[in-house]
Structures are given as structure tokens and as C-alpha cells.
Design a protein around this nucleic acid. Structure first.
Length: 597
RNA sequence: AGGGGUAUGGUGUAAUUGGCAACACGAGUGAUUCUGGUUCACUUAUUCUAGGUUCGAGUCCUAGUACCCCUGCCA
């Protein structure tokens, strides 16, 4: 049960058109929930596809693929490639498949296959098919035989270091292997015995016979097959020789009927090799074309798989889905709407310029989308007591409880209202009170009147301090005439603040996040080490109090804590909220400016 | 050193292919607002440099500069 299992289109059985996976192209990834519209994009890739369609190349057909190696978790950088692949296809009515480039048994695991598939679905894309390069191993082997027979490949018995040394250098010639001109029959025999498992890893390999003097290193007799005795996650122990990326990729594209093989810039020196392989094979298929674009990188963000792995291994984060991680799993836990990610990927456009985007611009899209859909709630993260000294009591001596209907989302009236309880026993945000208010501070201080959102206008009258002089409680009076938050005499207040009635509150823990790396370009100075990690990237706030309805938020849901930001309920731990992203904070900006002045 | 690629506001992309440099984000100013949120208005450019062709150049030509990628039996 190795290559060419019946449900896959491998093994060169069928000629051209019939060979492409017919599989009912799913409607389109765009057909997802509302408010997730991705804007239309035009970029140099789509212009080129457009031209191919007009010229009738590939019979007007468009097919792309996203080809991950299942050796790790997907991150934000992959999201760009995924979006590019799927959107390019779908905007021309074509299809996009996922193909796992699983040609290296040493690094690949089923766990990663599953997480990758889940992440792609989460982004809102539905691959027409899921393929595996390992399904084509038999066909790839046959084609290697064809190459050898045509004197275009040979078995080299030198070790890796020797081959590497003979490759030469930039501007310096390569040296041909002494095995380069061995008889075809000898290579054929050796290659068969490689497959049969007669040799150790590294004992020999199959090399293409191209040009040891080429300016392009990938054309200096690249290795096509190597011996690996490890266990493959899919073909198990059926094979001990494995094709390299270069021998597998283009042919896999061709087998599947890919028309435009979109990849990142660093592969552009492979393109001549990609074409060489296809040119020298008796392909019953149209020849796919590789197109490269610049990968997506962000400031303060690491997308090197090596470093990400290291962070997980050394425990500086909680795992691949730590909300600080740039992995899709991490962003999901953090509360990023998938459509914000794909929208961003489309909006930034596609070019061949290496660029590093400000992470803030991604956050801006997240805010924009969340603002439209996230329901508003009140939660006090750093509480300070606010006691209304003139709050009435019932006849039996218990405090009066009033209920207010608060708007769930002013941006979306259809979301309705919720009931929130109000008493004289309140908490407010401690930074909303100042004993000695700085300039432009509009919030509460003694003698000043502010609005408690949706409830009453209150005036601070006094404070209670502890032995050290810290304010532990603010005393205030409310104006009974201002029920709902408006004064009949029309007087204005400069600030509206969120609040929670203590007897009606639910306890919460809030995780606030800062950049994982303080440096704009992480690793620039420190390389692979984790020395430049921001030690304060997470601030865990316990003892937060939220309005009662916050106890009902389902895991994964994102709400706006009014005036504080968007918070995602942790899927596993009830009462834990991750701050997805803060609101724009004008007051913080004012303070920053005052500091500078 | 050889080859390949790329240069447009603080950032990222556009520019009907030779015809008024546009959009988004950020930043700033002001207005609106029961979230210092949202929304609205305005402000923010010697198109890498130097020459050249042209009535006209981000776009074409010449020379230069900077950055990225390529010497895995990784992908």
C-alpha cells in the first residue's frame, strides 16, 4: 500500500485532462459566514493567470495547491501562502488542493498533518482534495528509471561532504563525480538495490546529470534520491529511498493537474530545475509553471520554524497554541478571527519585494472586524471599591438593586440588550480614579462628576486610604435624577466609565499580552538564541470582576470588555480571558506625549 | 567573487503600461460620541542615486548604489 493507491490520480495511468483530479470543486472558500468578506485583490500573479486564461494556456483551467511539509504547525506566514493559493484559484473559478510534501520520513508526523488540515479549515478554506506526495512514490521511481535510462541521472557512491565540496562555489567551477559517466546499466542495478534496502544511509544517492559548471548551484547535479531507513508516517516501511523536494515537487504538481505552482521567493533558483525535471519526462500532462512571491513577515514576530520549535521545547511559551505564538493555533486561542487574517493577507497585496509588515496593521484589521461583531460587556480588571453613600435600602434594610438594559453592540442593534444589576456597592477600574488628576484626565477624582455607563451620574466625595496612604475605596454620591445616565438639566460630564456591581459579579482572570519579542526584527542581533525574548510578554490578572453574564461566555468566543479591549474566553479554562487586542487608547497616547514633553 | 531577484510617504501595496503619484495602516490636528472605542474631515512624497531620451518619465535608455536569495543526501 505504497504509492498509487486507487483513490489518488497517481501512477501515470491516465492521459492529460483525465489525470487532473475531478473532485467536485467546492463552492468556494468565500462562502462562509457573513462579516468575513475578503476584499477582491489583484496582484501580479493574478494578472499572469488572467493572461494565461485569455491565451488559452491550460485550456483556460486554473488549479493551485498549498504544499506544506507536515513537520510543524502552521503560522501566520503560511496564512499568506494559503490565502494566495486559494484566492487565486477561486477568483478564476479554479480549484486549490492541499498536498503534503511528505518526502522526508525523518521529520514528518501525523499529528502535524491533522493540525495543518484543521488550521486551513479554520481559516475558512476548503481544499478540493487532500493529496500526499508519498502517494506518488512509485510513479516518481519509474520516472527516475526513465531518467537513468536516458543517461540523465546516475548513482553516486561518494559521501555527502565530498559531493558538497565538489559542487564548487559561487564563481568557481564544480568538479564532476567519478561516477558521473558510469554505464547506465550499472546505475540501474544500483538504484534497484538502493530501493531493495541493500545499503546504509548515505552510502549512495541518485543524482541528476545536468551541468557542474552552471551558475545555478541547483543545476550542479542535484540529488534526486537518498537512502533513509526511518519510518514514514504514511508509507511506513515500504520505502528506504526517498525523493528530494526537487524530484517530487514539479512532478506532483503535474500529476495533480496544477497549472500555477505558487511558492515563495527563495525557490526561484529552483525553477530551472523544476522545469528541467518536467522537460525530461514523458509527461502526459501539461507542464505546470512555478511563480514566486515574497513571504509574509512581521515586526516583533518570529516565523522561523526552528526558533518556534525551540521556544516550545524550552518552555518559554506554553506550547504551539500559546496565545502569544504566531502560529494559527496560537492566534485562534488568542481570539483572532480567521477572516481578519485572510482579509489582511489579501489587503497587503502580493509582490516580489521582501517586506516586513508592522504587526500593528494586522491588529488593526482584527479590531475592525471585532468591533463589528463582538458583544460588549463590562469587566473591571484592576478593581477599586466605589461606594455610593446615598444609595437607598429597602424596607428590610437590604440595599436596593436596580436593573439596566445595556446595548450589546452599538455597531449592531440586532444584537439586542442584556440586563445588568446595579447597586451602591461597586468596583471601578483603579486607573479611572486619580487622587491628584493630571492634565487632561477626564475620569473620576474627588469633587468631579462622571457617568457610570448606562446607569447614573456619580460624584466622588471622599476616599478611604490604608496605612500606607493608598486609596482603597472611593466614596461617592449618585444623582437619582440621572437614571439611565442622562441629566434632566442637560449637564454634561467628560467621562463615562465601566463598572461592576460587586454582589452581582463573576470572578475572572485576564491574560494581557505584549510582544513576545521587543526588537522590531527578532533574532537580528541574537540569532537562534532566545535572549531577546520579552520577559513581560504575559501579565496575568487575577481577581478581576465581570458582570454576571460573563460567566456564560463560551470558550473561544470573543467579547469586548468596554474601554479595555477584545477578550477571548479560553476554550478549556472557564473564567480565563485572553486579551486578543486592546482598543485604541487615546488616553495612553496623551500620557505618552506628556512624558515626552 | 558568479548567478538570480527587488528598490515608490513612517509601514505595506497601487498607478489605465509614457499622461494630474492613489489606497490602507500608523502618526498629527479638529469634529461627533453615554466606550479617551466607533464614525467623519483635514495634514503627512526630491518615486534608491547620477546622467540621458521625450512636449511629458515611477514607468524607457546608460552608469552606479543598497538590500534579499542560491554552494542540504531539508522543504
Amino acid at each position: 500500500m505504497t504509492a498509487g493507491s486507487p483513490e489518488t490520480p497517481s501512477a501515470g495511468a491516465t492521459p492529460s485532462a483525465g489525470a487532473k483530479p475531478s473532485a467536485g470543486a467546492k463552492p468556494s472558500a468565500g462562502a462562509k459566514p457573513a462579516a468575513t468578506e475578503r476584499p477582491a485583490a489583484s496582484d501580479f500573479i493574478r494578472e499572469r493567470v488572467q493572461r494565461d486564461i485569455e491565451q488559452g494556456t491550460f485550456g483556460g483551467r486554473v488549479q493551485t495547491r498549498f504544499p506544506p511539509e507536515p513537520n510543524g504547525y502552521l503560522h501566520i506566514g503560511h496564512a499568506k501562502a494559503i490565502t494566495q493559493d486559494f484566492v487565486t484559484a477561486e477568483s478564476f473559478g479554479g480549484i486549490c488542493n492541499v498536498r503534503f510534501d511528505d518526502t522526508n520520513p525523518d521529520t514528518e508526523e501525523v499529528e502535524f498533518v491533522e493540525s495543518i488540515l484543521a488550521d486551513i479549515e479554520w481559516l475558512g478554506f476548503h481544499p478540493a482534495n487532500v493529496f500526499y506526495a508519498s502517494d506518488y512514490f512509485e510513479q516518481l521511481y519509474d520516472w527516475a528509471l526513465h531518467l537513468i535510462s536516458n543517461n540523465l541521472a546516475y548513482v553516486d557512491e561518494q559521501d555527502g561532504d565530498t559531493i558538497s565540496a565538489q559542487r564548487g562555489g559561487y564563481g568557481r567551477p564544480g568538479i564532476e563525480s567519478p561516477y558521473r559517466d558510469r554505464p547506465v546499466a550499472e546505475s540501474l542495478d544500483l538504484f534497484a538495490r538502493m530501493r531493495a534496502g541493500e545499503f546504509d544511509e548515505g552510502a549512495m544517492c541518485l543524482r541528476a546529470k545536468i551541468d557542474m559548471q552552471s551558475d545555478n548551484m541547483w543545476l550542479r547535479d542535484p540529488v534526486l534520491y537518498r537512502i533513509r531507513h526511518g519510518h514514514h508516517h504514511r508509507t511506513h516501511d515500504a520505502w528506504v529511498i526517498y525523493p528530494t523536494y526537487d524530484w517530487a515537487h514539479g512532478q506532483s504538481d503535474a500529476i495533480e493537474g496544477v497549472t500555477h505552482s505558487i511558492c515563495t521567493l527563495e525557490f526561484d533558483s529552483h525553477r530551472p530545475l523544476y522545469d528541467w525535471c518536467l522537460d525530461n519526462l514523458p509527461l502526459p500532462y501539461e507542464q505546470p509553471q512555478q511563480i514566486e512571491f515574497a513571504r509574509l513577515e512581521f515586526t516583533h514576530t518570529v516565523t522561523s520554524k526552528r526558533r518556534l520549535k525551540k521556544m516550545v521545547a524550552e518552555g518559554v511559551v506554553d506550547g504551539w497554541d500559546d496565545p502569544r505564538m504566531p502560529t494559527l493555533a496560537g492566534l485562534r486561542r488568542r481570539g483572532y478571527p480567521p477572516s481578519a487574517i485572510t482579509t489582511f493577507c489579501v489587503e497587503i497585496g502580493t509582490a516580489r519585494t521582501n517586506a516586513r509588515h508592522a504587526i500593528e496593521s494586522l491588529e488593526a484589521v482584527v479590531r475592525r472586524q471585532l468591533n463589528a461583531v463582538a458583544q460588549r460587556r463590562m469587566a473591571v480588571l484592576r478593581p477599586i471599591k466605589l461606594t455610593l453613600t446615598n444609595w437607598p435600602t429597602n424596607d428590610d434594610g437590604t440595599p436596593v438593586v436596580e436593573w439596566f438594559d445595556l446595548t450589546n453592540n452599538p455597531e449592531n442593534p440586532d444584537d439586542g440588550t442584556r440586563r445588568v444589576a446595579f447597586t451602591g456597592n461597586l468596583v471601578i477600574e483603579s486607573e479611572d480614579f486619580a487622587l491628584d488628576p493630571p492634565p487632561k484626565f477626564f475620569r473620576l477624582s474627588v469633587g468631579r462628576e462622571v457617568r457610570l455607563r448606562g446607569a447614573y451620574l456619580v460624584t466622588a466625595t471622599d476616599v478611604v486610604t490604608d496605612d500606607d496612604g493608598n486609596v482603597v475605596e472611593v466614596l461617592a454620591t449618585y444623582d437619582p435624577e440621572t437614571r439611565g445616565g442622562d441629566a434632566p438639566d442637560g449637564r454634561k460630564v467628560k467621562s463615562t466609565m465601566h463598572w461592576v456591581s460587586v454582589p452581582h459579579s463573576t470572578p475572572l482572570t485576564a491574560a494581557l499580552y505584549d510582544r513576545l519579542f521587543a526588537a522590531e526584527v527578532p533574532g537580528e542581533a541574537t540569532g537562534e538564541s532566545l535572549d531577546d525574548l520579552n520577559p513581560n510578554s504575559r501579565e496575568l490578572l487575577t481577581g478581576c470582576l465581570g458582570e454576571a453574564s460573563l460567566a456564560d461566555v463560551e470558550g473561544g468566543q470573543v467579547v469586548q470588555f468596554e474601554r479595555l479591549g477584545y477578550f477571548a474566553a479560553d476554550p478549556d479554562q472557564p473564567g480565563l480571558f485572553h486579551r486578543t487586542v486592546g482598543l485604541k487608547d487615546e488616553w495612553a497616547a496623551i500620557q505618552r506625549r506628556q512624558q515626552k514633553a
